[in-house]
């Protein structure tokens, strides 16, 4: 169920470092097959990587459960939080994950910036992956050997070589403050209300519409993947675009999950704090028009 961003980097580095990647299955409703995931662990497993929330189906994964199994097997746990951090309270200590990444552009912040959380002890052990200014404590030149000696800075600066994206950092901080002022629990509550309302309306009003994955709002965030019989996802998106409604169409950077669902592509409606029930009503009315095409 992973976004390509949680597949491709591992594939690239596996070719360099020569390790094997095992992929866990998903159930027909798009939820994670936990038993299959847990069966993949062995004494050789170094790291488990899982999205907290699927960007296609909105399914919320029990990363705490997987983290526990990972640690029991001596592995580390990485979580892709791009779709969870903007939508709910995420406590990395409670989840006991070793690493968690998220992006600014999905949480009212700018593009091109995100954050990686890592347990301090692990970050201290890790080598930098980039070189430049700021990430060193000192660079000394030995006149006798004519060689440079380098001492790394402390985390996180050790991993932040060069002049940082200052504007992006300031803007992301303001976005975080804005969301925290609302309260992440309130954000999730509101999104779930919208999702539940939208699913009910879609199921009752649209006859040619197919909802992909689970429709149980208790299992997911505010994402509804769907299709309309006889129309491609792009036609649906272009039609809605005429009415000022923006959805995403295509693979959503998660082609393997579409293969599981046996779909050419999907349309995806997603909600956030700025959306309203009235907008959902409008969305449903336009979909009813589309069904008449």
């Amino acid at each position: 169920m992973e976004h390509h961003s949680n597949i491709v980097p591992w594939e690239i580095i596996s070719k360099i470092n020569g390790f094997t990647i095992k992929y866990a299955k998903v159930n027909d409703d798009g939820t994670l097959d936990y038993e299959d995931f847990e069966s993949k662990f062995s004494s050789k497993t170094k790291l488990a990587s899982l999205s907290h929330v699927s960007n296609v189906s909105g399914v919320i994964n029990d990363v705490k459960r997987i983290a526990k199994v990972a640690h029991e097997n001596g592995a580390l746990m990485f979580v892709d939080g791009a779709q969870s951090v903007p939508h709910m309270r995420v406590d990395v200590r409670d989840l006991d994950v070793d690493f968690l990444a998220f992006s600014g552009h999905k949480m009212l912040g700018p593009t091109g910036i995100g954050a990686l959380y890592g347990k301090k002890a692990l970050l201290e052990k890790m080598e930098p992956f980039q070189g430049g200014g700021e990430m060193i404590k000192e660079v000394s030149f030995n006149q006798k050997t004519e060689q440079c000696g380098i001492g790394w800075n402390d985390p996180p600066w050790k991993f932040e070589a060069g002049t940082p994206n200052i504007c992006g950092g300031v803007a992301l901080m303001e976005a975080i403050k804005y969301l925290e002022n609302i309260g992440m629990s309130e954000v999730l509550k509101y999104e779930k209300m919208l999702t539940e309302y939208a699913v009910k309306r879609l199921q009752s009003c649209c006859t040619k519409l197919i909802l992909y994955g689970t429709s149980d709002p208790s299992l997911k965030c505010g994402i509804i993947p769907f299709g309309i019989v006889g129309l491609s996802s792009h036609d649906i998106a272009l039609f809605l675009d005429n009415y000022g409604i923006m959805i995403r169409s295509g693979f959503h950077c998660a082609q393997p999950l579409h293969q599981v669902f046996k779909l050419q592509s999907s349309a995806r409606a997603s909600f956030y704090i700025y959306n309203t029930r009235e907008e959902i009503d409008r969305f449903v009315e336009i979909l009813k028009e589309i069904e008449r095409v």
Partner: peptide, 10 residues
């Protein structure tokens, strides 16, 4: 190009 298996052009 559309994103998806359809490979349509917009």
């Amino acid at each position: 190009g559309t994103c998806g298996a359809e490979k349509d052009l917009i």
